[in-house]
């Protein structure tokens, strides 16, 4: 007999997993098109959520307007970040670029703390009802919204990369930069676009998580949770990122169930994804969907 707690946790897992998937997609987008491992991905959520929170509480803008403004701000933020910080690093060793993104991550956390304080702030109520019924289970409307937003983003990504001119250009750049340039594609433009999209979409996820859990620096921890999702799916696969996100989301909630019902170890929720990460890396080092690199010596 499946208990309603288990069902509830599975539903939560799918919803949170879809969000992980979305952020993981953004991470993969940057990695694939610019070869940068972006350790500051979680801070995009953080900055996006605080920006939206500030627009809603201090400027008292209606939520949809604030949401849109946050979106625009993050687009500009992503482009400026790429142009000012990462463009000069093109051609530098991978390890230097990684150090820079880790540095960015610490820097943004500190700046956000300095501006908004270290305490979590509740997001003003956006939806009139506290919870809605889905198959007899109470679900927060923000969660439902997040599921819808995630699915819309995934469909939009699929469309963008399959049919749009810039999407094709980004795939070409990911495949071979020199070929892309020979086709008349501006690689600098593609890099800026990748960071802009990544920052925008991550911020969206940040706002949604912030609406449920309150806005705080814990949001950047959400970004860290995305690493197992990315690695499980394979670093360079967009589909892998979604599947990886869902797996991690389900897994931590199932771990929570096993923990609370039988094991009573405590905190298995946040540790389980990383155990799985280690196991997957041992069995399939390129992840479930990643490209195996064939190296000839």
């Amino acid at each position: 007999m499946i208990s309603s707690l288990l069902l509830q946790l599975i539903l939560n897992g799918l919803i949170v997993g879809a969000l992980y998937g979305v952020v993981a997609m953004c991470f993969v987008l940057i990695y694939k098109s610019t070869q940068v491992v972006n350790f500051a991905q979680g801070e995009f959520l953080l900055i996006g959520a605080w920006t939206c929170w500030w627009l809603v509480t201090s400027l008292e803008l209606p939520f949809p307007a604030a949401f849109l403004l946050t979106f625009l701000f993050m687009m500009v933020f992503g482009i400026v970040l790429q142009m000012v910080v990462l463009r000069p690093l093109i051609g530098e060793p991978v390890i230097s670029v990684i150090m820079v993104t880790i540095g960015l991550s610490i820097f943004f956390q500190a700046v956000v703390k300095a501006i908004f304080g270290a305490w979590a702030q509740p997001f003003p109520e956006v939806f009139p009802v506290k919870s809605v019924d889905v198959f007899g289970l109470p679900v927060q409307p923000a969660y439902l919204m997040s599921l819808v937003v995630s699915v819309v983003i995934m469909v939009a990504f699929a469309w963008f990369f399959k049919y749009s001119r810039m999407g094709l250009a980004m795939r070409a750049t990911a495949f071979d930069q020199q070929v892309a340039q020979s086709l008349g594609i501006s690689v600098k433009g593609v890099f800026a676009l990748a960071w802009a999209i990544s920052a925008m979409v991550s911020a969206l996820a940040g706002v949604v998580v912030g609406m449920v859990n309150g806005v705080s620096s814990a949001l950047s921890f959400f970004g860290i949770k995305v690493f197992p999702a990315v690695i499980v799916g394979g670093l360079d696969s967009i589909v892998g990122a979604i599947v990886g996100g869902l797996i991690i989301g389900l897994l931590e909630n199932l771990a929570e169930y096993a923990d609370s019902q039988f094991l009573h170890l405590g905190n298995l929720y946040s540790v389980a994804p990383f155990y799985v990460l280690v196991i997957i890396l041992m069995i399939k080092p390129y992840g479930l969907f990643g490209t195996k690199r064939i190296e000839r010596v």
Partner: peptide, 10 residues
């Protein structure tokens, strides 16, 4: 370019 260089995964 030399070696054709088409985008193989498209």
């Amino acid at each position: 370019m030399e070696g054709r260089r088409i985008i193989e995964d498209m």
